[in-house]
Simulated scan of single mutants.
Amino acid sequence: MTLPHPVLLADIGGTYARFSVLPEPGGRPGPIRKVPTAGFPGPVDAIRAYVDRQDAVRPRSAFLAVAGRITPGITRLTNAPWRFDPGGIGEAFGLEAVRLVNDYVPLAAAVTVLDPDDPAELARIGPAVEGVGPRFVLGPGTGLGAAVLIPAGDRLLIQTTEAGHIGFGPCEPDDKMPWSALMAAEGRLTAETLLSGPGLVRLVRALAATRGAAVGWSSPPEVLEGARSDPVARDAVHQFARLLGRFAGDMALVFSATGGVFLAGGIAPRIVDVLRGEPFSQAFEDKAPFREAMLALPRAVILHPEPAIDGLAALLADEDRFLFPAQDWRA
């Protein structure tokens, strides 16, 4: 299904929703408006606040990337109470078509248009990105999103995953992690339990409790700021990087990501220097009997401020090139 222009573009996560309009085929997205997801009861209200602005271009269709599992009928955000009914959204705004995709579909597409030589777009934390072979995108933020971009002849297949919800736990005899305390507090541990913004807070609070230190952190920015001077917060960030490296390396093995591993989301861009250090790299590469292969895998952090919006535009600019799961509605 071809989406008629102008197209409303949206990147909707558990914390923020971002909106733009692509006015014409091959064009550039217009100015991006970012609003807190919690500021609206649902997507229709947030979209209405955007399209009813005096200077807004009225869209004919919508391409919505949402942080949730795309299912027939109603799609729900994983970490916020919003519900998405493509037909209801289309009818509310008189649209001709609506497409829903997981938010990591455009992030995977974005790695095809980001400039690997521009440090404002990609920060190297390992070997240089060459773009050969499958590319894996992983993003700790409100949750833990993941997708893989797989070459298939002249086309590119984007496979979204629920990798963030697989079980997660210790794999070294003594890694100085409070696993028992975390399991007692959280029950089943998943990768997202720790490798996310809320996960970073869980981690620092568990470390503080086991050391008898004051537990004074309630948000990821507080932990990251505290890591400048507080030894517990600093250790939590380094443990976070180590666990992220371990998980990213495991996923690189699963998907044979010889084209590289790309870290997105709200946390990785703020800890690039830590991710260039030993905790991340050693855990990423320590995959016997494939250590030599892991040493060669490209690694980068996506620094581009709004990669998903550019990824949505890239998908529309070259529709025949990409294959990806989506839910479509047409009037």
Rank of each mutant, 00 (worst) to 15 (best):
L3A: 10
P6L: 02
R18G: 07
P25R: 15
G26I: 12
P29V: 06
P29A: 03
G30M: 02
G30D: 07
I32E: 07
R33Q: 15
V35C: 13
P36Y: 05
P41A: 01
G42F: 00
Y50S: 09
R53E: 12
V57D: 09
R58N: 07
R58I: 15
P59K: 05
S61A: 14
A62I: 15
A65I: 08
G68H: 00
I70Y: 07
D85L: 06
D85R: 14
D85T: 13
G87T: 10
G88T: 06
F93R: 06
L95Q: 02
E96W: 00
E96A: 02
A97S: 13
R99V: 15
R99D: 04
N102R: 11
V105S: 10
L107T: 06
A108W: 03
V111W: 05
V111Q: 02
T112C: 03
D115G: 04
A120G: 14
E121I: 07
R124H: 08
G141L: 14
L144N: 04
L144C: 02
L144W: 12
G145T: 01
A147W: 08
L149K: 01
I150S: 08
A152C: 13
G153V: 04
G153K: 01
L157H: 09
L157V: 14
H165F: 09
G167V: 11
P170N: 02
C171I: 14
D175T: 06
M177P: 13
M177D: 04
M177L: 10
W179L: 11
A181K: 06
L189G: 09
T190I: 05
G197T: 00
G199I: 08
R202L: 13
L203F: 05
R205Q: 13
R205C: 09
A206C: 00
G212A: 01
A214D: 12
G216F: 15
G216I: 04
S218F: 07
V223Y: 04
V223A: 01
E225H: 10
A227M: 06
A227R: 14
S229F: 11
D230A: 02
A248G: 14
D250N: 10
M251K: 14
A252K: 10
L253V: 08
S256E: 11
V261K: 03
V261N: 04
G265I: 13
R270Y: 04
V272E: 11
V274F: 00
L275H: 07
G277C: 11
P279C: 02
P279A: 07
A283M: 09
F284A: 13
E285D: 14
A293T: 05
R299D: 00
E306K: 10
A314G: 01
P325C: 15
A326Y: 06
R330C: 05
A331T: 05
